Simulated scan of single mutants.
Amino acid sequence: MLKKGSEDTNMKVLTVVSHPRKDSLTFEVAEHFVKGLTEAGHEYEILDLHEIGFDPVLKGVDEPDWSVAEQPFSPEVEMEIRRMKEHDALALIFPLWWWHLPAMLKGYIDRVWNNGFAYGANHLHHQHVLWIGLAGVSKEQMKKRNYDEMITHLLNVGIADYCGVSNSKVEFLYETLDSHPNHYEMLLNQAYRLGLNYDKGH
């Protein structure tokens, strides 16, 4: 459902959320993020990949065909491509599993950010991409083996820039396994501020 901000300005932000549970911290982060978007005057749509039953497995019909500039895809992928085209910018909110995107979100990118739409003959038209990754570890643990740099490079350069979006930013919410109320509040405030300052931090 498309939600309108308080004023007719700024961007329509497709907010893709990948977590199997609605009562997860990931979804709380998403709710606070879009609250910030709304207060900043943006519009948004939350796309819950699990709720729509998105199939992350790429099958032959959606395999990139490098011999053509544009190609038809499965109805499910074509629908998601249309959804992306209706928005000016993107946000992806997800837990960090094995130092990477969850399989559901990776499969969404595999299938939807496809040849002739996101790369190849055409590229994504979106002004910004924001990746919000929830990490169970601390900032120091992430930096110890340069996981933060590797993940940031993969998402900003390997995916977003390859698809034509140079304004891409990765934000980590750390120590998400710490259930202390004050820490949760800090993480949710961080998410809210990322929404409120969405078009200022890129």
Rank of each mutant, 00 (worst) to 15 (best):
W99E: 04
N156Y: 01
Y147E: 04
V112W: 06
H125I: 02
R83V: 09
K85T: 12
G107A: 05
A160G: 03
Y147S: 03
S166K: 08
S166R: 05
S168G: 11
R83W: 10
P72Q: 07
L130I: 07
L92P: 02
E70L: 06
W113V: 04
L101R: 09
R82V: 14
L134Y: 09
I151A: 10
P102C: 05
M104G: 02
V129M: 13
D65C: 08
L90C: 13
R83H: 10
H123V: 00
S168Q: 06
I109N: 06
H123C: 01
Y162V: 00
P95N: 07
W97L: 05
I93W: 12
A118W: 02
Q127S: 15
I159S: 05
N115C: 07
H153Q: 12
L134H: 09
Y162D: 00
L92Q: 15
V129T: 14
I151F: 15
I151E: 10
L101G: 04
P64R: 01
R82H: 14
V68R: 15
K144G: 11
M150V: 12
V137R: 10
A135R: 12
E140G: 03
M79E: 12
G107W: 10
G158W: 06
K144W: 13
K106M: 07
P64I: 08
P75R: 08
W113S: 01
L96W: 02
Q71F: 02
G120V: 00
G116L: 07
M150I: 14
K169P: 01
Y119S: 04
H100A: 12
E78M: 13
M84D: 04
L155F: 04
S74V: 07
N115M: 05
R82E: 15
Q127P: 00
L124N: 03
W66L: 14
H128C: 04
I132A: 08
F94D: 05
V129C: 05
G107V: 09
K85P: 04
Y162K: 02
L92N: 05
I151Q: 08
S168K: 07
A103Y: 06
V68G: 02
F73G: 00
S166F: 03
A69D: 14
I151C: 04
S74H: 07
A121P: 01
I93S: 08
V157F: 12
A160Q: 02
F94W: 01
P64C: 10
S74F: 07
L154M: 12
L90H: 06
V157N: 15
G116K: 02
N167M: 04
E86Y: 11
R145C: 08
I132E: 09
V68P: 11
E70A: 05
P95M: 05
G133I: 06
G164H: 01
D148R: 11
F73T: 11
S74R: 07
E80D: 09
W99I: 03
D110T: 03
A118N: 00
G158K: 02
E80Q: 15
E78N: 00
W99R: 08
Q141R: 14
E70H: 12
P64F: 08
L154V: 09
W66C: 05
W66S: 11
E76S: 13
D161W: 02
D65E: 13
Q141G: 13
A118E: 01
L90I: 14
A135V: 11
Q127D: 14
E140D: 14
I93H: 06
H125T: 13
S168V: 03
